[in-house]
Nucleic acid binder design. Structure first.
Lengths: 235, 235
DNA sequence: GATGATTTGTACGTATGTATA
DNA sequence: ATATACATACGTACAAATCAT
C-alpha cells in the first residue's frame, strides 16, 4: 500500500521536525514575541498534535538558540539583551565578511551573473523607493554571497544567527539615506567579488555591516532598548 | 496529598540534558565512533532511563550537528566526509581568527597573565617533549584566546565546531617539528594580543591554523581519507 | 515479493515541582 | 504560610515503517 511513492505529505514520519520548523518560522516572523512562553499544551492544540512532538521540537529550538529553557519552568522564546544582540551582529559580521572573501575567490560565472542581477534589481528598487522590495533583494544578495563562499558550514552558521536576530529586525526604516548608502556599499562588495579581490571583498563587507550596525545604533537612541536594533535590516 | 515523598531518588529536573551531555562527551571522546548507530533503547538501558529523555537528547545532538537523523531510520553519530571536514576546519579558522582580533582589542590584564602562563607552560611541555601535555595546553591556550574575545556567541560557535571535529582528531603525531612550529606561531599570536595589535593577531592566527591544516593535509597523504585529518590537533 | 522482527514515531497517563490565591 | 492549580518531566503503550529473512 504505497501512497503514491512521491514526496508529499508525510503524515507520520517527522512530525516533530515539522512542528519545529513551524515554531521557528513563527518566532522569526514575529508571531511569537521574544520572551513569550511556549506552552506545550497550547502549541500541541494549535498544531493538532500531541505534546510529545512539541516537546522534542522545543528541545531542538533550544539547541539552536531560538528558545531558552529554564529547568522545570518551561520554555520561552529567546529574549535577547542589548549586549547579546550586539554580540550576535558582531558574529554575523565576522561570518559574512569571511564568506565574502571566500566568495571572491571561489564564485563562478553563474554566481557572478546572479550577483549582477540581484544588484541591478536592488538599483531599481532604490530608484522606485520600494523599501519592501529593496529589503527582500538585500536579503537575497547577502544570501547569494554567503552561499557563494562554497562552505555550507559557514553558510549555515550565518543563517542560524540571522534567524536569531530576525525577531528584532524591524524593517520599517524611513531613512532613505541609509538605503542609498547600503546600495553604494553593496556596489563595492559586488565589484570586489567580481574582480576576485578577496581582501577588498572582506574589508568592504565588514565596513558595510559596521555601517549598518551604526545606523541601527543611531536609530536606537530615539527608541527603546534592544527592540529597535532595527535598521540592521538594511545591510 | 503526598504519596510517600521518599521514593524518587532521581533528581528529576533535566535528565534529557544530562543524557545529551553524556552522549556528546561520548562522541567527542571517541566512545561512539562516527556513523555509529545511536539506538534509543540501548542508550536508555545504558543510562538507566526511559527512551523519552534519550529521544530528546538525540534531537538536541542533531540540532548541534553532532549527530544526524534520517527519518524513520534512526540517529547516527555524524560522519564527516573529507569535504565537510575541510569546511569545518576552514570555519574554525575564520572564527578563531576573528576571536584573536577581538582578543587583541579587548583582553584585559588577567587575561594577559593567563595567556602568558599558558604559553610558558607550552614552552616547558615542548622542552620536555611531553606531547600529551602540549596538546592539553594548546587547547587551553586556544580556548583562552577565544574566550578573550569577549563575545560568547563567537566563543560558543567555535566550541561547537571544535566538538564536531573532535572525533577526527587523533593527536598521535610524532612530528616534533610540527610542535615546535606550533609553538613559534603561538608566540607570534600571543605577542600580538599582548601588544593589542588586532590586525597582526588576526593574521597570525589565520596563518597558524592554515599551517596546522597543511600539516594535516601532508599527513593525510600517507594515510587514509578523512580519518587522518589528524595533525590539526596541534594548532 | 511477502512476512516477521526490530526500531522509530506518536500518544497518553502520572508524578513532581513551581507559581498563584 | 498553606493549599490549589497548572505546567513540565518521565515513563509506558501502541502504531507505523524499515530492514532482514
Amino acid at each position: 500500500m504505497k501512497p503514491a511513492a512521491g514526496l508529499p505529505s508525510c503524515p507520520r514520519g517527522r512530525l516533530a521536525d515539522e512542528v519545529c520548523r513551524e515554531i521557528a518560522d513563527g518566532i522569526v516572523l514575529g508571531r511569537f514575541a521574544p520572551n513569550a512562553r511556549l506552552d506545550e499544551s497550547t502549541l500541541a492544540a494549535l498544531f493538532g498534535v500531541s505534546r510529545t512532538p512539541v516537546r522534542e521540537a522545543l528541545k531542538q529550538l533550544v539547541a539552536t538558540g531560538l528558545a531558552t529553557c529554564r529547568p522545570n519552568r518551561g520554555t520561552v522564546v529567546a529574549g535577547l539583551s542589548s549586549d547579546q544582540l550586539e554580540q550576535l551582529f558582531e558574529a554575523i559580521g565576522e561570518l559574512e565578511a569571511a564568506c565574502a572573501r571566500h566568495a571572491a575567490l571561489r564564485m563562478d560565472a553563474p554566481g557572478h551573473a546572479c550577483l549582477r542581477a540581484l544588484h541591478a534589481s536592488a538599483r531599481e528598487s532604490m530608484r522606485d523607493q520600494d523599501i519592501d522590495r529593496y529589503d527582500a533583494v538585500n536579503r537575497e544578495l547577502h544570501a547569494a554571497i554567503v552561499r557563494g563562499a562554497g562552505n555550507p558550514v559557514l553558510s549555515e552558521m550565518a543563517a542560524q544567527l540571522k534567524k536569531r536576530v530576525a525577531p528584532y529586525r524591524r524593517t520599517q526604516f524611513r531613512e532613505l539615506d541609509r538605503m542609498r548608502a547600503s546600495f553604494e556599499e553593496h556596489s563595492a562588495i559586488v565589484e570586489a567579488i567580481l574582480a576576485h579581490d578577496a581582501a577588498m571583498a572582506y574589508r568592504e563587507m565588514r565596513a558595510h555591516l559596521l555601517s549598518a550596525h551604526n545606523a541601527a545604533e543611531r536609530l536606537r537612541r530615539g527608541r527603546d532598548g534592544a527592540m529597535a536594533a532595527a535598521a540592521a535590516a538594511h545591510q
